[in-house]
């Protein structure tokens, strides 16, 4: 029980979205939000950086295209040319179907593997769940107590959570630290004393 977190539980995604914006504009950065289903706009509201997964998917797909085209050309025209039905060895139009399939295959596998790795997914570790209802009907906002160690800060966060509709507020110690996120305005997030507005 090393890592302590302050948890605010919500029961509605619209209340959660507003609360996220309001709490951040009051100068407090939540460490993580757990939701039972994707809430559109939540990543923006909590200041998460955009995912770059699709860019990686494009790179993988382009690799697949080049791989398929170059392999087929080299095999059929250079390594072992065989006359089939009098067709030419370098038959690009006939390479299109396989090139397309390999492009899709590379992009899909590459992106999926990248997502699983980046999310730290593993079949070998036991999952530590912040709240069992976070995959059912509760939206859990977690604040890192290491970051907001002063009692003053914690009281303010509790007040903000109450004010913006949290149905339950509690403290929890976790064995494992919650994976850190990259936020858009990370340099601004070092303390609440800046009090910057969130537009």
């Amino acid at each position: 029980m090393k890592h302590k977190y302050l948890l605010g539980l919500f029961d509605d995604e619209e209340i959660l979205l507003t609360a996220t914006e309001k709490i951040r504009s009051a100068g407090y950065q939540m460490h993580e939000i757990y939701t039972p289903f994707p809430v559109h706009g939540l990543d923006k509201a909590m200041g998460l950086q955009d995912s770059r997964l699709h860019t990686f998917g494009f790179i993988c797909g382009a690799t697949g295209t080049l791989f398929a085209l170059s392999m087929m050309s080299l095999i059929a025209a250079v390594d072992w040319p065989i006359i089939v039905g009098g067709k030419q060895f370098l038959a690009f139009p006939a390479y299109v179907p396989i090139t397309f399939e390999v492009t899709v295959l590379f992009a899909s596998i590459g992106m999926t593997v990248a997502m699983y790795l980046r999310c730290g997914f593993s079949v070998f570790t036991d999952t530590e769940v912040v709240d069992l209802r976070a995959t059912d009907d509760r939206f859990v906002m977690a604040f890192c107590e290491k970051r907001y160690s002063e009692a003053d800060d914690q009281n303010k966060i509790v007040d903000l959570l109450k004010q913006h509709g949290a149905v339950e507020i509690k403290e929890r110690g976790l064995d494992n630290e919650i994976q850190p996120n990259l936020f858009v305005m990370d340099e601004d997030d070092h303390g609440h004393d800046h009090g910057h507005g969130h537009h």
Binding site: T35, P38, S108, M115, T127, Q179, N181
Partner: peptide, 23 residues
């Protein structure tokens, strides 16, 4: 696979779903 439903997981999940659907 240790899914917990964090905002970042959902963000990547949605990104992946969209591209996989497009493919």
């Amino acid at each position: 696979f240790g899914w917990t439903g964090t905002a970042k997981q959902w963000q990547r999940f949605e990104d992946l779903s969209l591209v996989l659907a497009g493919l």
